[in-house]
Structures are given as C-alpha cells and as structure tokens.
Design a protein around this nucleic acid. Structure first.
Lengths: 332, 332
DNA sequence: ATTTGGGTTGCAATCGATTGCATTCGAGCG
DNA sequence: CGCTCGAATGCAATCGATTGCAACCCAAAT
C-alpha cells in the first residue's frame, strides 16, 4: 500500500480511504488512486485488514456429522446445503471456512471464534442433541444451527417443518389404504423425533393404534436401510404394508432389499422418504418423498447468522416442506 | 497476551516463546506460562499471528463446476472429495476456505492468494480446459488441480487413470459380447476425453470399428442421462446393446429411462458407469462401474499442495481405478 | 577479583491497513 | 485585509504476536 501511496503522491491514509470509496477524499484523487492500484494489480492485504479491524469476514461451517453414526458425508443433501451456504456467504461478503471433524471435542467455538479465525459459526446437524451446542450457547458465541427447534436449548435454528413432513408422509400412506406403517429412523435426533411426532399424529387421527415395535432405529446411511428392511420387513414384521423413512437414503436401501426379495413396491409395500434427494427421481419406482428446501435453508442460515453478527435479533426458522408424490407410495 | 505476561510476571516475548515450546525458555517458566494461559482460556490470536508471519495456514478450495453446465453440485463425488480434503487439511494443520462460485471470473488466484487469504489453492475440476488455470499457472501461484494430466498445461494434477478406466469398462462390455457400445459424456472435459481414449483403444483392440455417432455429448447430470437415453437408445441408435457412461449419475438416468421403456438391463442393453457412486449399489440392477479412490485423491491433493508450499517438488499423480462388477454389465 | 560464557529473558521493531485528530489550503465574507 | 469555515489530506497511534539483538545473571575459569 505504501507503494501505491508513493506512486500516487499521497499518504497511505488517503490510499486506504480512496479504496474504500470514502467521501472524505476528493473524487479526482480517489479515481486516480484507484486506477493506480488497479494498474499495479494491488490487492488489499486481508490479513492485515482483518487484524486491524478485529473482524475476519469469515464464517465457519462445521459439519457435525458423526461418521461412525452412519451418516455418510457423501449425502447429496449436505452438498446442496453447503453449496447454498457458500453462495450466500459470498453474496454477503463473507469467506467460508470448512471443517468436517471438529478440531477437538472440547470446545467447538474456541478454535474458530476465540482464536479469531471466524466471526460466526454455522453448525450442520445437532447430532443426538449434542451437549457441546449448549455449552457453546452458554458462552454467548455467535452461531446458528441447521436442525430442529428444541425447547430447552438456547440457540437458534433453521430447519424444515419436520412434524408437518412426517405427518404428510404418513397421512398419504394411510389415505392409500395402508394400515401397518413402519417408521425407519433414529428418534434421538431432534429432527427425526419431530418427524416421528408427525407420524404418530397422523396415525392417531386415523385411529390406527401406535405400535412401538414398528419404530425401527435406523441410521442415515443407505446400507442400514437395506439391513433394516431385511430384518424387519422380511422378518419380524411381515404384516407391514408401508414404510416411512426419515431419509431418501434409507428408503433407497429399503427398496433395493425389497426388490431383491421379490417384494413389489408399492403394491406389497408402499414407501415414502424424506429430503427429495436428486436420485429419488431415478429410482424405480420413483420415490415419493417430503421435499426440504435446502437451498433456501442454506441461505437463511447465512442471513440469520449475519444478522446476529450485526447485533440484530433473530428467531427460529421453520420452513415448509412439500409432499412430492411419485410412484412408491402406492398411488398418484 | 499482555495479560498473560502480566499474570506470569514475564514479558510478552517470553509468553510467545513459551507457548511455542521454544527451547530458549527455561522449562519451569515455560510450564508456568502455559498453565496460566490454559487457566485463563487464552487462545492465541490467529489473525495477528498470520499477519505477522505472512502465512495464513489456510488452503482455499475452489469448486470450478459450471452449474449451467449441468454438473449438479449435489454430486456425491464432490462431497466425498471435499470431506477428504478437509480431513487431510486439518491433519496438516491447515484451515480450509471454501468457494463455489469463483469470486470474479477475472483472476482466480487474486482473491485468495494476493489478498493473503490463503497460502495455496485446490481446484476441483478443469472444466472444459479452463484457460484461467493456465493464467494462474503463469503467475506462479501455488495451486493444484483435481483432474487429468494434460500435455501443454503448466500445473500439477491429481486424478484417476481415466484412460485405463475407460478401457476397462469398454473391454468388459466387449467381453460380455456387446458390439454396439455407446459412449455418453462430453469429451471436451480432459478427464472425459481420457476415458474416451480408453474406450477407443478397447474397441480397436477388439477389432470393432469406431462409430463417432455413438459418442454422445452428455453432461454430468442425471437428467441429461435420462434425456440422452431417450433420444439415442430409443431413437437413432436402436442397435445399441451397451453403454459406457462417464459418470454413474448419467448411468442412473439412462437406467431410469430404459426401465420406463421396458428395455431390460442388462439383457437388452448393458451399462457401465464411472465413479462408484454410493448409490450405484442400490440401483436395480446394481450398477457396474469404475471406482475412483476419491478419498485418497483428496488426501493427495492436500499433501502435494503442502509440499509445493514448502518448496518441495511434486509431480502429477494418476491413481489406479478399479472395476467394480455388479449386474448392469450383463454378466458377473 | 575480574573475565568469560552459556543460559534466560526483555526491549523494541515489525508486519499493513485503518482512523481520530491535527493540519493545510483556499474560498468566501465582513 | 484578516478571519472563519469546510473540504481535503497527512500524521501517528493502533491492533497482537513474533524475533533479532541486547542485556542480564550466575557460575566457572583465570
């Protein structure tokens, strides 16, 4: 910058102000400085600037997905969400720091926030109600979570209306004449718990007794859907005529196993998934599912976090879901 | 830091050295300082440190995937690669900056490198031989590319042995008795071009004449596989008895269309894909494919870039591919 | 007792951009 | 002509950690 100052015959202060389009500087000078800077391909040193301003203009995204837990990181869902977050962050003038395995289990916020690597945190996934999030919240760290709004937690979330989604999915299956509807998913996840609540409500409204043995803990991965289908639908619960899976991945695994076993979908067993994974269209039969507007979700995560950083108040966001009817649910 | 210095009754210099475990400092002092720092939950200010050291300890990942171009960012491939890059970067003590839409088309390196936001760049995808990469190389920027080694380019890459993969896929189809093998992919992409070269070599070795009209430009997306299947296999080229798709996504789209049309896979048309997308297992029939070791690729990208940053010399990396035989190719 | 020297520690400059305050300059006005 | 005022610009401090060099202390050697 001092070079530019010398070349332009002004002080560094003037250069700094010129490049910021400060009205303090005479327009002619400003133009001249800007031209010279451009000519010499001068780029302001972000490190120095951030240091001085005590602002990093950076958001950190933490993928809090426990791999042992089976949530394969390859999930299309994540990529879309991440892409959308990245786009919106760029829009808002923030860089994006990415972390898949939280540096140390100890304190999520420490690494990024206290060491001034990022201004705020976006956390993808609450896991099974991870207590670390509560500790983060207690420390007043600026962060936001993709997931479900949970009563006694002191942080804000953006997520889909999982209760409604679960309800819609189950209701559709009931309307299509199904009576024995299994639920595949792990309700220790807050989001899944909400879907399960919707599932129960739909059953109740239809007067179908709730059978706990039809709620099968299943992790996000496809292979687990496959295995649970094997164990449950082909084993203990042959009476099942429908399945609501908390993710399309699970549903695709189920469909694979059923197809191998010669069980027809949807004739013998109807299936509804969740997410509207891009691949849901291409399965055979097409997978009926609950669509989440993930792109919008990513955008809102960033926008709300930026609000927090600016000291504005925010609230939880619950986005509507949409029922996408294809063939797997047993009727159009 | 000055607080810690005061509390410990030493100078900031001593604190700084202590926290670095510098042997210059007496062991007792060092311990004491470290304890005090920990007690007070002091975290070194990364912004100041990076500024002083002119090192960001950060790598930037640029997803150079043209969306209009149909390569859906949701591709599982990308997520796995990204995850692996993130893990290895953490291993090596680097943070990861993520960018999906290059800030300005102008100069990729400028934003991240010249402005000192990152020490090096990892570029995912060469696009259709993007000239920006050559400009980056000309400017001596430290970066590395996921893609194919191309003759007259002055940058290093990490990628799969696409020629061998294309060859293996095609050869398998030939061995399974297929004569009219279509190629679905856009060979303006260097990686796809290599796969196509492998395809040609396999045909040649088998004495099957190369038919250019069987090479169908198809973008990465699933929907395009679907459409091309409609147009080509069900239209102009009913003689086709096999298809080699440059990605599993394309292959899944093709399978969907064929299944709708009542054409049997693999009996009527055999299919081989590329990538070993996690979903390839779950399609019906299981998709035979060429597996890329993407996790290893991500790791190597980071390791090689770090080498560059340390002034070490590196070379291109071509990783072996693996033929994964399932059912879609027409024989086990 | 003075010198030498190794082991510790502190001083102070430095990185590059920003910004409050002071300064300069010129125009306008009494 | 002198004074005021506002616009434009410069001065210099500042952010927090790092590091070359100087300074210091104490023990051993002379």
């Amino acid at each position: 910058m001092s070079d530019i100052a010398r070349l332009a015959g002004v002080s560094e202060a003037t250069v700094s102000r010129s490049l910021k389009d400060s009205p303090l500087i005479n327009e002619k000078t400003r133009k001249r400085v800007q031209d010279i800077a451009r000519e010499h391909n001068y780029k302001i040193n972000a490190a120095a600037r951030n240091f001085r301003l005590k602002k990093t203009h950076t958001l950190a995204v933490v993928l809090l997905v426990d791999r042992e837990w089976g949530h394969e990181v390859s999930d299309a869902f994540l990529m879309v969400l991440l892409g959308s977050i990245a786009d919106e962050a760029a829009n808002q003038g923030y860089d994006l720091l990415l972390s898949t395995n939280p540096h140390d289990v100890a304190d999520l916020g420490a690494y990024y926030l206290e060491s001034k690597r990022a201004d705020g945190l976006i956390i993808i996934g609450q896991g099974r109600n991870d207590p670390r999030l509560d500790r983060l919240a207690a420390s007043k760290a600026p962060f936001i979570v993709w997931g479900a709004e949970v009563e006694d937690h002191d942080y804000f979330t953006v997520g889909s209306d999982n209760r409604q989604g679960g309800y819609d999915a189950t209701k559709l299956l009931i309307e299509n004449g199904r009576k024995h509807i299994a639920f595949l998913g792990d309700i220790r996840h807050p989001e899944m718990e909400h879907r399960w609540e919707g599932y129960r409500r739909a059953l109740e409204e239809a007067g179908i007794p709730y059978d706990e043995s039809l709620v099968i803990p299943t992790d996000f991965s496809r292979s687990d859907g496959y295995e649970k289908a094997d164990k449950v639908l082909l084993g203990e619960h042959r009476e099942c005529d429908a399945v609501f899976c908390v993710s399309d991945n699970i549903a695709l695994g189920v469909m694979k196993r059923l197809s191998e076993a010669g069980i027809r979908v949807p004739e013998d067993i109807a299936i509804v998934g969740f997410d509207d994974n891009p691949l849901a269209v291409f399965s055979t039969p097409g997978l009926t599912t609950i669509k989440q507007d993930i792109r919008e979700g990513g955008k809102l995560l960033v926008q709300n976090l930026v609000k927090v950083l600016n000291g504005e108040a925010i609230g939880h966001v619950t986005m509507p879901t949409e029922l996408i009817v294809r063939q797997s649910c047993g009727r159009g």
